[in-house]
Simulated scan of single mutants.
Amino acid sequence: MAIIKIGLIGCGGITAPHVKGYLRIPEQAKVTAVSDVVAANAEKRAQEVGGAEIYSDYNEMLAKADIDAVDICLPHHLHKDAIVAAANAKKHILCEKPLCLTVQEAEAVQQAVSANGVTLMCAHNQLTMPPVAKVKQMINEGVFGKVYEIRTTDSFFNSFDPKNIGWRGNRSMIGGGELIDTGYHPTYLLLYLASSEPVEVTAMLSKHRLEFMDGEDSAQVLVRFADGAVGNIVTSWAYVPAAITEKFSIVAEKGNAYSYGSDLFYKLQGGEPKKIELSGVDTFAEEIKDFVTCLQEGRRPVNTEAEGINVLKVILGAYKSVEEKRTISLSDLV
């Protein structure tokens, strides 16, 4: 099977775990080109991968480099243009979250990917967590019956201050606040476990501690799904959550399940509580391997632009819900 040649678009901090992932599968992939407007960043990544062509402009890299796919690790507001340019250059795409920032950008992404017949995978690394994969399997097999409610969380004490927050402190660049950044993880996790289209969103945003931010530092979001299930997202940069706070939980017709991010706990009606012990993984490395394997096998990624757009719409719906103080129908988003 041919080795997939990768071009990095953006060589900042988030690129480090991506590079580590590629280095773990040298028989499947190799980073052959890197691009960044900051020369030192590009040079650092090129050195880490054992040598790669260096570009200051990703458009030049797309035109000249010998690559099959790109890995986009740019600030949020730059994602759409990079995706469209890569798709038009017939390169497959792995893009860090969020997919983009507006419904209009999402439509442009969808059109470019479809028109050029390329594969786009959203970099939703938490889907590779073993408890997530296991509970998803059990849901699909009907172990729990109809799912009633799902809760996902991702909160921690973030040490951001005005001196180190960078572009994330600017609403126009990040696309909002914490919800569209770290909060993106529990949002895509919620939609993955729901297995139904999100249709309505109600939200409350807070600025508990990081007052200098343009956007929120915390969010709680309720999501109604087409099959009647209800989801709850809790996410924050403001605090360390209580020790009992689960990573995800589901309550369903035949029982319930939850995880703190490692083992999976579940209980069926009339049965005893059970624990499935699971080994930890490097979620970024697993994500990278899955992307490359999808390209080699011609397989559809778990989360393509279609799933990425649904995640984005939930977040945009949450922002609109707060702005208009009402429940938002996602079909009305424009």
Rank of each mutant, 00 (worst) to 15 (best):
A63G: 12
I328L: 12
C100S: 13
I150T: 10
D161E: 05
S196P: 01
M213E: 09
D57C: 13
I174G: 01
P98K: 08
S35M: 15
C73D: 11
L278W: 05
T152H: 01
L101I: 04
V302D: 09
D66I: 15
Q137P: 03
H76I: 03
E286L: 06
L120P: 05
K289Y: 11
G12A: 15
G117W: 08
Y148C: 15
I25L: 11
Q269S: 06
M213H: 01
S195M: 00
A226Q: 01
G270S: 02
S56M: 14
H76T: 13
M1G: 10
G145S: 08
A16N: 11
V37H: 15
L62E: 09
T283N: 13
A46K: 07
E43I: 04
V132D: 05
K20M: 14
A39R: 12
V302L: 04
D71N: 12
V234I: 04
I150E: 00
L312A: 01
S155R: 02
V118M: 03
L120C: 08
L264T: 04
K97E: 07
C11D: 04
D290S: 11
L222E: 02
I54P: 07
G271M: 08
S172H: 07
L210Y: 03
G12S: 11
F225N: 00
V251H: 09
T152F: 02
A243H: 09
A29P: 10
P301S: 09
I328W: 09
E211A: 15
L295R: 04
V230C: 02
A89F: 09
R45C: 13
V103E: 04
V113P: 13
I93L: 06
L268Y: 07
I288F: 08
I139F: 04
E211N: 11
V221S: 05
C11E: 05
T293D: 02
A52E: 03
D282N: 09
V234M: 07
V334D: 13
Q137A: 13
Y258S: 12
E297S: 11
A229K: 01
A243Y: 12
S196I: 02
A52S: 06
K207N: 06
Y260H: 07
S155H: 00
D181C: 07
K320I: 15
K5R: 10
G298M: 02
F156R: 06
K134C: 10
V103R: 05
A106K: 02
L179A: 08
G7T: 01
A229Q: 00
G317D: 06
K64H: 15
F248V: 08
G261Q: 03
R45I: 08
A194N: 00
F291W: 04
Q269I: 11
